[in-house]
Structures are given as structure tokens and as C-alpha cells.
Measured scan of single mutants.
Amino acid sequence: DRMTSQEAACFPDIISGPQQTQKVFLFIRNRTLQLWLDNPKIQLTFEATLQQLEAPYNSDTVLVHRVHSYLERHGLINF
């Protein structure tokens, strides 16, 4: 699994950072998509996403918020 070119453009700090940071991003992105796909008729809020993310992935709330906002803005969740 890899970041898309659009994700890389929107998250230059992640793509240029350590490999582990990219893996954390990918986990948060994929898990958020999975959470929404589990029940697409219900809006997936940032707060609900954060509550359902497993530790330690829920510890970087800023990154979780950025990923959630990106997915929502680009019509990948909550459409």
C-alpha cells in the first residue's frame, strides 16, 4: 500500500518523512475508509474516527484530523 500522488502533494511532510510516518498515515487512512465503509449511511465524524482508531494510531490527533479532513474534502468519505 502506498500514498497516491494526490496524497503526496497534500501531505509533503509525510511523503518526505521517515518510512514509519508514512506507514502510520496509511494505517489511519485505510482504517478511516474502513470505518466509513462499515456504515456509509452514517456520517463519520472526526471524533468518532478518533474513538475507533486503535492505539497507538489514535495518539496523533492532528494527523488523524488532517487525514479525516482530506478524505472528506476529496469525497472519499461522507458523500
Score class of each variant (00 low, 15 high):
D1E: 08
D1V: 07
R2L: 08
M3T: 02
M3A: 03
S5D: 14
S5T: 12
S5K: 10
Q6M: 08
Q6P: 06
E7R: 00
E7F: 00
E7W: 00
A8P: 03
A9G: 10
A9H: 06
C10G: 09
C10H: 09
F11H: 01
F11E: 01
P12N: 09
P12D: 08
I14A: 01
I14V: 12
I14N: 02
I15V: 14
I15S: 12
S16H: 10
S16K: 06
G17C: 07
G17S: 08
G17H: 05
G17E: 06
P18F: 06
P18C: 13
P18I: 09
P18Y: 06
Q19S: 15
Q20T: 09
Q20Y: 13
Q20P: 10
T21V: 14
T21K: 15
Q22R: 11
Q22N: 05
Q22M: 15
K23G: 10
K23Q: 12
K23S: 14
K23L: 11
K23C: 08
V24S: 14
V24Q: 13
F25N: 02
F25G: 01
F25V: 03
L26I: 12
L26E: 08
L26A: 10
I28Y: 03
R29H: 00
N30P: 00
N30Y: 04
N30M: 05
N30Q: 08
N30A: 06
R31A: 11
R31T: 08
T32S: 08
T32K: 00
T32I: 15
T32A: 10
L33P: 00
L33C: 12
Q34M: 06
Q34Y: 04
L35A: 09
L35R: 06
W36F: 07
L37Y: 12
L37C: 11
D38S: 13
D38C: 11
N39P: 02
P40Q: 08
P40C: 07
K41T: 13
I42T: 14
I42H: 10
I42W: 08
I42D: 15
I42V: 15
Q43T: 13
Q43A: 12
Q43V: 13
L44A: 03
L44Y: 02
T45M: 03
T45R: 05
T45L: 02
T45W: 01
T45Q: 04
F46N: 04
F46K: 06
F46S: 09
E47V: 07
E47N: 07
E47Q: 12
A48D: 07
A48S: 13
T49A: 11
T49I: 06
T49R: 00
T49Q: 04
T49W: 01
L50H: 06
Q51K: 15
Q51F: 09
Q52S: 13
Q52D: 13
L53S: 01
L53F: 07
L53H: 02
E54V: 11
E54A: 09
E54Q: 15
E54I: 10
A55S: 14
A55G: 09
A55M: 09
A55K: 06
A55H: 12
P56G: 05
Y57R: 02
Y57K: 02
N58I: 04
N58C: 06
N58K: 08
S59W: 08
S59N: 15
S59G: 11
D60A: 10
V62N: 15
V62M: 09
V62H: 13
L63C: 01
V64S: 02
V64K: 04
V64Y: 03
V64A: 10
V64P: 00
H65C: 11
V67Q: 00
V67H: 01
V67M: 03
H68C: 02
H68L: 04
H68G: 02
H68D: 01
H68R: 02
S69T: 12
S69G: 13
S69E: 12
Y70A: 03
Y70L: 01
Y70C: 05
L71A: 03
L71H: 01
E72R: 05
R73P: 00
H74T: 13
H74L: 10
H74M: 12
H74D: 06
G75Y: 03
G75R: 11
G75V: 04
L76H: 04
L76E: 12
I77Q: 00
I77S: 02
N78H: 00
N78D: 02
F79N: 07
F79P: 12
F79K: 15
